[in-house]
Design a protein around this nucleic acid. Structure first.
Length: 236
DNA sequence: GCGACAG
DNA sequence: ATCTTGTCGC
């Protein structure tokens, strides 16, 4: 487990970056997943004009209730939790983990189910120091994670093909290191940025995201967590 | 010095 | 992220 208590931090940007550099080396990018029976979607929203951070985790049963290799997938929601706490850090590009991970951990503590895989709204290793919020959370929980972001943080890429499932590699650095995939999750819509979080390879990450695609741009886990975090949930 | 910049 | 009206498409 990591060497610094994220719950206690009171880090200046400079210290946060130093911590990220130390933690980055521990992020595993190779597949090391147990058989998946439950997968989670994680996202953070805000209330009170940003004063309150609202973390949401939705657990879905695998396999889907309905799906074909390329048909919209439908899942059974096994559990969903919301955790609210005071916001203690502003948004700083590259340091999103320090703003969102503490609240996400609070939400995971309330979970009854222990998922074998989680999709997080944000980048995985597609980050300047290769440790975006998805990697950070996965490392902390020792849980396989996948980063699913709506826009790019860093890296270069070609425009992916027009069909659902088409993707191009996202590369970065002087040696064109592959850090993620720019995936066309839905025709005629801007692509999403998928990257390994922790204990998952890029190929596996893309596979899972495609298999969880419903009718919208975002895969079901992230879409449902998004809805809950933003208080867009039909029920609550 | 000038852009770029997850949520 | 969040604030918001109207509008386009299945």
């Amino acid at each position: 487990m990591p060497d610094t208590a994220l719950h206690d931090w009171n880090l200046a940007p400079k210290e946060a970056i130093a911590l990220q550099k130390r933690l980055a080396g521990r992020v595993e990018r190779a597949d090391r997943l147990d058989p998946v029976r439950h997968l989670a979607g994680v996202d953070i929203g805000f209330e009170e004009d940003g004063a309150i951070t609202r973390a949401a985790v939705v657990v879905l049963a695998w396999p889907p209730v309905a799906s074909g290799e390329f048909e919209p997938a439908t899942f059974e929601i096994v559990e969903q939790v919301v955790h609210r706490e005071p916001t203690r850090m502003p948004y700083v590009p590259g340091l999103l983990s320090f703003r969102e991970v503490p609240a996400a951990l609070g939400a995971f503590e309330k979970l009854t189910t222990r998922p074998q895989l989680a999709m997080v709204d944000g980048q995985g290793i597609a980050h300047p120091r290769r440790i975006g919020v998805a990697s950070h959370l996965g490392l902390w929980l020792d849980l396989p994670t996948i980063g699913v972001a709506k826009t790019r943080l860093c890296g270069r890429h070609e425009e992916p093909g027009p069909a659902r499932g088409d993707w191009t590699p996202l590369v970065d650095g002087p040696d064109d290191e592959t850090i993620g995939a720019v995936l066309r999750s839905r025709a005629k819509v801007k692509p999403i940025f998928v990257s390994p979080g922790h204990r998952v390879s890029l190929a596996t990450a893309v596979d899972w995201v495609i298999r969880c695609l419903g009718r919208t741009k975002l895969p079901e886990p992230t879409r449902l967590a998004d809805r809950l975090a933003s208080r867009r949930d039909p029920r609550c």
